[in-house]
């Protein structure tokens, strides 16, 4: 469905992409993983044909370099934060439907699909962040394209909206859509991806299954647990006895967990009758930044 050969992109002297090659089969859901500046967004821009590049790139057998407009017709695009014009939801969908040559009846179909039919008459700027992302997904689905390109689609959403959005995209993938998405959230990659392409400094450095990613990159997740001040000592003792790696941080503790054992520290504290006031799951890099500031 998507074939990239020796994809290279320079901004002045800086190489944003350096000889990147990959192939994505129809029906796959492939994550582009990498830190900021790794080349994820540049790769997606190349797929969309909104910027020039060296190398070869085909989407649905269409040469993106030679015919980017036709290639874009085969792609539904959901950005991190779609910037819509000042229109109602319905007007927005009709506007993009005309550009995508989608029949007018597709508008009501996609509204139903993303569960925005009750908000059709609302102005877009009245929608929540989650609803705006669902609208962007609806726009992407208007012409029923075989490929969906998502650029960190849940980065600005709350937990519930993230879950709902991921669920919607999972359903689309199961229905046969080919998905390419960028992310630096491990849970999103595991939930949504069938394969991961790891980018670093514009180069493709690793290709693996989502469940292998944490181990191969040495990534950890941290559970941040808040306990009452008078339980801090007992909490240290329980975490020590359980063999957990942890960092105290004010009234909270960062406890290193693996993907399958997120609940373990909570269970140990419960067994020791230490009430947990709150908790959060955080990427390792954030914990290190937080610890440095502590």
């Amino acid at each position: 469905m998507i074939i990239a050969k020796h994809l290279t992109k320079h901004y002045g002297k800086n190489a944003a992409l350096n000889d990147v090659s990959f192939a994505i089969e129809a029906g796959e859901s492939v994550a582009l993983w990498g830190a900021n500046g790794a080349g994820k967004t540049t790769t997606l821009r190349c797929l969309l044909g909104v910027q020039g590049f060296e190398g070869e790139l085909t989407v649905n057998a269409i040469d993106v370099c030679k015919n980017s407009k036709v290639a874009r017709a085969a792609i539904g695009y959901v950005p991190q934060e779609a910037a819509f014009y000042d229109m109602t939801v319905l007007e927005t969908l009709h506007f993009y439907a005309r550009l995508k040559k989608a029949p007018a009846q597709r508008v009501s179909m996609v509204l139903l699909q993303v569960q925005l039919e009750e908000h059709a008459a609302k102005r877009v700027n009245m929608l929540s962040g989650g609803m705006k992302q669902r609208l962007a997904l609806a726009v992407a689905l208007l012409a029923d394209p075989p490929v969906l390109v998502l650029d960190e689609p849940t980065a600005n959403l709350d937990v519930k909206a993230q879950r709902d959005f991921i669920h919607s995209v999972q359903n689309l993938n199961q229905a046969g859509k080919t998905i390419v998405f960028s992310s630096h959230r491990l849970d999103e990659v595991v939930a949504l991806g069938t394969r991961v392409l790891v980018l670093a400094d514009g180069s493709l450095t690793l290709e693996c299954q989502p469940h292998e990613l944490a181990e191969k990159l040495g990534l950890h997740r941290w559970l941040r647990i808040w306990v009452a001040a008078h339980h801090k000592q007992d909490t240290r003792k329980v975490l020590d006895e359980g063999g957990f790696t942890y960092m105290p941080n004010g009234r909270s503790f960062y406890v290193q967990v693996n993907l399958g054992g997120k609940i373990e520290p909570l269970r140990s504290l419960e067994a020791a009758s230490i009430p947990v006031e709150d908790f959060d799951l955080i990427d390792g890099e954030l914990v290190l930044q937080g610890a440095n500031h502590d």
Binding site: R72, P79, A143
Partner: peptide, 14 residues
């Protein structure tokens, strides 16, 4: 500035 332009250009238009 708002990002609306690049979103529009990501559609099948030139």
């Amino acid at each position: 500035e708002t990002g609306a332009l690049v979103y529009l250009l990501a559609q099948p238009v030139n």
